[in-house]
Simulated assay, not measured.
Amino acid sequence: MKKVFLLFFAVISMITFAQNEMTITSGSFDFIKNETEINVQLKFDNTLYQVENLTEEQYLQNRKKDILAKSGKTEADWQKWSEEWGRFKSSEYLKYFMKGANSKSKIVFENERPAKYTLIIDAQWIYAGWHGGIMGQEAKLTSIMKFVETNDPSKVILELKADKILGKPQNKDFVMEYGRIAGAFEATGKRLMGKEYKRALRK
């Protein structure tokens, strides 16, 4: 029984590792060596959700049905949930990303900065995870990240793909979908400032 458990754990770990990757698709971190700040933008132009690859509209329709199907829940509850979803999408996800990036770097990542370079995060796929009392599953985020010249965004200096980055397991809103997704943005920010970035600083 113990051997079966260890084999199961090893397989799960391999799957998680294979998905929880960040790779450079073009360019390098060399440009960042002498920078002190980076502007950050977040896009949700064509984001898909869950394993079914739902559009945001489909995902929200399903969540509305789920919420209203619960005993005692009303349109007011759905409205409150929807407002929080919108707030996190418009501001909190970016804050969590910057929190993760800034915790691992001397460079300041912030939105609306007069920086030479801008990081554009294109959220392509989101798995919201789940929470069931004492147990839960972290969210995952797949994104394309491009460092571009702020004055000419067509000039891409560095492009990376973050594939199904597993979110941090704890924050004050983890019991809600948007809280778990925020954790995935924070984890992505931390992973961005990983080994490739540190190698560039040592050159």
Rank of each mutant, 00 (worst) to 15 (best):
M145C: 11
I144D: 04
E138H: 02
K89L: 07
D122W: 00
Y127P: 01
Q124E: 14
E112L: 07
M98K: 05
G100T: 08
G86S: 15
N102S: 08
F88P: 08
G133H: 10
K106R: 12
Y96T: 03
I107H: 01
T150W: 07
N111M: 06
L141T: 04
A128H: 09
A123G: 03
M135F: 12
M98D: 08
I134G: 09
D152Y: 05
E138M: 12
L119I: 06
M145R: 07
I121F: 08
P114R: 05
F147M: 08
K116D: 03
W130P: 00
Q124V: 01
E110R: 13
R113W: 08
L141D: 06
N111H: 13
G86I: 09
I126C: 06
I126G: 07
M145I: 06
G100L: 04
K106V: 04
S91W: 14
Q137I: 11
D122Q: 06
W130T: 15
S105C: 09
T150D: 11
K104E: 15
W130M: 14
G133Y: 11
E110C: 06
T118H: 01
P114W: 00
K146S: 13
I120Y: 05
P153V: 08
E138V: 12
K104M: 14
A123Q: 02
F97V: 03
L141S: 07
G136F: 12
G100A: 04
P114Y: 00
G100Q: 06
Q137R: 09
T142A: 02
K106Q: 13
K104T: 05
W130G: 14
A128Y: 05
Q124D: 11
A115F: 11
F97E: 01
Q137E: 14
Q124T: 02
N111P: 03
I134T: 14
K146V: 01
K106H: 08
E110S: 15
E112G: 03
I121R: 04
H131S: 15
E112Q: 14
F147E: 00
M135C: 09
S91C: 09
G100M: 04
A123M: 01
A139G: 05
A115W: 10
M135S: 15
I144T: 15
M135Q: 15
G86A: 15
K99S: 15
W130R: 11
S154Y: 01
M135R: 12
E110I: 13
S154L: 04
K89A: 10
F88H: 12
W125E: 15
K95V: 10
G133S: 10
Y96I: 02
W130L: 10
K104A: 11
K89P: 02
A101R: 01
T142L: 02
T150N: 12
G100P: 02
F147H: 01
I120G: 00
P153L: 06
N102Y: 08
Y127R: 12
A101W: 00
E92N: 14
Y117M: 06
P114L: 06
H131G: 07
T150V: 07
Y96S: 07
M135P: 02
V108E: 13
D152S: 13
P114I: 03
F147Q: 00
Y127V: 03
N102T: 10
K104L: 09
Y93H: 12
F88L: 07
M145W: 10
K116H: 08
L119M: 15
N102K: 10
S105P: 02
E92R: 14
K116Y: 02
I126M: 12
N102M: 10
I121C: 05
A128V: 13
N151Q: 14
